[in-house]
Design a protein around this nucleic acid. Structure first.
Lengths: 118, 118
DNA sequence: TGATTATATCATTGAATGCTGATGTGATGA
DNA sequence: TCATCACATCAGCATTCAATGATATAATCA
């Protein structure tokens, strides 16, 4: 049985991962891996709507995954920490091994559900 | 604008992170970090219900984060890969830096929402 | 075989969450 | 000041998803 402090730690960690656990947010993070971008540039890079991106950016910023900097009318965003990049890279490594499994995991699939039967 | 292959890659990565993005699943993964456990032991370790755990284990297994091994009536689970552990550890490192932000991020908070008003 | 143990599956329900479209706000320039 | 640009915020909707309780399955033992 978990005690309160451990639960809190788990909730924090879950929230951190949650920042990465959405394709739109990942697209934003990926776009920011190479260089800081303003919102309009992120819109172009991802094809997502402006308000959608702004919402996700708010979450990512609140959660400390990105930081923003105002320049005139533009707001530039960048990854808050090099380890954000490391996490993404490590995830890619893991994926290269377990991709088959994730690929077949239809539990959280929003696109479509092909698959066999277990 | 993202092309199809990149989108697929993002969806995969998001699903991978999704395995980590829930306190219950994290509790299960944490329990398995030290040693393989059967379902009953995971129930004890986490305090979650059996069916709840079984559901999460199904997801974790389908997504390739854990592997299972039958031993008599028991099913033992363990982390599928050392890098699963690395990802958890790296997340802890990041948390130690951006914890304040995540802590204040009420967007995905299920426990409670104190906080100031931005 | 029948009882029990260990685990998986299922339907349901309520809550969380992503997306959209409209609107608000602040900065810039005519 | 007025129009415009860049971005943030908000309400509403539709979907996803976690948890529960009941039930099914599969293995073990008497």
């Amino acid at each position: 049985m978990l005690i309160a402090g451990e639960q809190l730690q788990l909730n924090l960690k879950a929230k951190l991962f949650r920042g990465f656990a959405d394709p739109s947010r990942l697209a934003i993070l990926e776009a920011l891996r190479s260089t800081p971008l303003n919102v309009g540039e992120i819109v172009e890079a991802t094809g997502l709507s402006q308000s959608n991106i702004s919402n996700h950016l708010g979450c990512l910023r609140d959660c400390g995954l990105v930081v923003s900097e105002q320049r005139g009318r533009f707001t530039y965003y960048r990854l808050a920490d090099d380890r954000i990049d490391s996490l993404l890279r490590l995830a890619e490594e893991v994926l290269s091994d377990v991709a088959k499994g994730v690929y077949q995991c239809t539990r959280y699939d929003s696109t479509e559900g092909d698959s066999d039967g277990e």
